[in-house]
Write a protein that binds this DNA or RNA. Structure first.
Lengths: 139, 139
DNA sequence: TAATAAATCTATAACCTTTACAATGTTGTT
DNA sequence: AACAACATTGTAAAGGTTATAGATTTATTA
């Protein structure tokens, strides 16, 4: 499972990242909204609570969290960078009709391309596109 | 193997896409430069031959070619949409040091996530990040 | 071939996301 | 309390992509 909020706070301390009020809110948002939100979604939602919040802060915070490997960047589609707190390897499915992004479990370690024998692999990503069951049933 | 240039021209006719001079040049470029170029790379190189070429035309052409499934969009990294004429399923490896994108063969059909039983899958993508052998040896 | 319609190309401006930067505010340490 | 270090904010700038309108080319018909 995903790490709990408390565990994440500990992680930040371990990695010498100060936990400001804004960073705490972003982190909390990511743990509670594991729907791969965009910066704009995060900013818009948090702005309701923190009227002084700047979008730059959201960018900065996400960059910091990414640097310490607590957050993962997902680039399924151009022009919409999404953020995911789950660092575990899993695949993403984007519905081309409604835009929802679904997680799915995939045995990425099973992928052992012989072509990459001499390559150092840091990150593996799998994403599919298509139509989700809900949109299929509506059609 | 990849389709030949002549075959691609036939494909365009089949799909009722007019083959203008500019489109022909872009298509030719993609078949001869299968290095997943960006729009800017395509435009800059072609501009040497066609001084009147507009970057908008490159965008438009790529969109048309994508719509008829002759070209595939690769989004490995944010802010750099890349184009690939090879529609066959294969994986991409991006070297985080030199930026080169390598192809590798991967048995994508082997990926049969049970989670996606009821999903209609149109497109499968696999991309890895890490360091390529050349950069490893230089270090 | 000429006339007309349709499609394509070009250039510019607009848009949107992300980054850079400088000023302000906050936190931590002594 | 004073200082330094860091974080936040707001604005401006950068970069890539798209919208649009006019010019050019191509296709069609007579």
């Amino acid at each position: 499972m995903n790490p709990s909020f408390e565990e994440l706070k500990k992680e930040l301390n371990l990695r010498n990242v100060n936990l400001s009020y804004q960073r705490l809110k972003v982190l909390k948002y990511l743990t509670q909204n594991q729907c791969h939100p965009t910066v704009d979604q995060i900013f818009t939602d948090l702005h309701k609570d923190i009227s002084t919040l700047s979008k730059t802060t959201v960018y900065n915070t996400l960059r910091v969290l990414e640097e310490v490997d607590l957050v993962r960047v997902i680039t399924i589609e151009e022009h919409e960078t999404r953020y995911d707190i789950n660092v575990e390897n899993h695949g993403h499915f984007k519905c081309e009709t409604c835009g929802t992004i679904y997680d799915f479990s995939v045995d990425i370690d099973f992928l052992t391309p012989r072509d990459l024998d001499k390559f150092k692999i840091n990150d593996k990503n799998v994403y599919f596109k298509g139509i989700c069951p809900r949109c299929l049933s509506i059609e």
